[in-house]
């Protein structure tokens, strides 16, 4: 499986491209969530689950330089041989610009970037079991992993958000098949459990033996998930979000404190083993 590969630094750099991608679709999924589908020949076939792209939020180069100088890192929601799909949340000026980009225009995309989810190999042909915990827009980074993992694992996918309209959870998950078990939590109780994702985990962990735990979302949630993984001995990866400038490892804007010193969220991460992180 692709996402089990450990990428060395040089091959990661060699596999990164700058591509002008044609926008296939850019549409609202809810009040605050949008989906952007891009045609990509260079980046799409190289994407591994967990990696991200760094994209300009306007189709006009001068608008980018003078209005939206910094690219935005967005995790890849879905990718196949010629398409990349991203899900983004409307949060500020950059994403407000991005929703104005119409189909047919071109966006400058840099990628794929970063480390991928590192699922431990199963010892025999038995079916593994994995627990994925996504909070808010961070859930998007787990979808490609869920698609791949369900080929070999039963996957408990815990998806949380502030309310039902912010859940990154839709009919795409049906493609994961029957090995996917969905668990929903919302802060306001508008869907699933009324509360946090973290509330659902003790019962799941008590009742199942997990080979792998992966989480992406608010850092406070990831920290709690990582603590649970440590106390129960489950191998756990986290995907961290940072502000980024270059996105390729040069500027050191996106530093993460780890037991090995400062690491870069862009190229050393975004996926880290949870035990490396100094929370």
């Amino acid at each position: 499986m692709n996402c089990e590969q450990k990428l060395d630094y040089e091959s990661k750099l060699n596999d990164c491209f700058l591509e002008d991608c044609v926008v296939l679709r850019n549409y609202a999924l809810s009040d605050t969530l949008w989906r952007l589908d891009l045609r990509s020949d260079l980046i799409a076939p190289r994407v591994l689950p967990g990696q991200f792209v760094h994209l300009c939020v306007s189709a006009s180069p001068s608008d980018c330089v003078f209005g939206h100088l910094l690219r935005r890192p967005l995790s890849v929601y879905f990718a196949n041989n010629d398409t990349i799909s991203l899900i983004y949340q409307l949060v500020g000026r950059g994403t407000r610009s991005l929703i104005c980009v119409s189909a047919g225009s071109r966006l400058s995309v840099l990628g794929p970037i970063g480390s991928c989810w590192s699922v431990p190999a199963l010892k025999d042909n038995s079916c593994g079991r994995a627990l994925l915990v996504g909070g808010g827009i961070g859930t998007a980074a787990l979808h490609l992993l869920a698609r791949q993992l369900t080929q070999t694992h039963v996957v408990d996918f815990v998806v949380g958000a502030a309310n039902a309209s912010m859940l990154v959870c839709n009919e795409d998950l049906l493609l994961c098949g029957e090995k996917l078990r969905l668990h929903i939590a919302t802060d306001d109780g508008s869907a699933g459990h009324h509360g946090f994702t973290i509330d659902l985990l003790p019962e799941l962990v008590n009742n199942n033996k997990y080979h792998y735990l992966a989480t992406c979302g608010p850092e406070i949630m990831q920290r709690k998930v990582a603590a649970l993984a440590k106390s129960t001995g489950i191998y756990c990866d986290v995907s961290l979000e940072r502000r980024m400038a270059c996105g390729i490892g040069a500027c050191l804007s996106c530093s993460v404190d780890t037991i090995y010193g400062k690491k870069r969220a862009c190229v050393d991460g975004p996926v880290f083993n949870a035990e490396e992180i100094l929370w």
């Binding site: 040089e10 750099l13 060699n14 990164c16 491209f17 700058l18 840099l110 400038a245 270059c246 390729i248 490892g249 040069a250 500027c251 190229v267």
Partner: peptide, 15 residues
């Protein structure tokens, strides 16, 4: 802005 160039080197060559 450029580290020591290694990261950009690969990207420029790919372009």
């Amino acid at each position: 802005t450029f580290g020591s160039g290694r990261e950009y080197h690969a990207l420029w060559r790919n372009a």
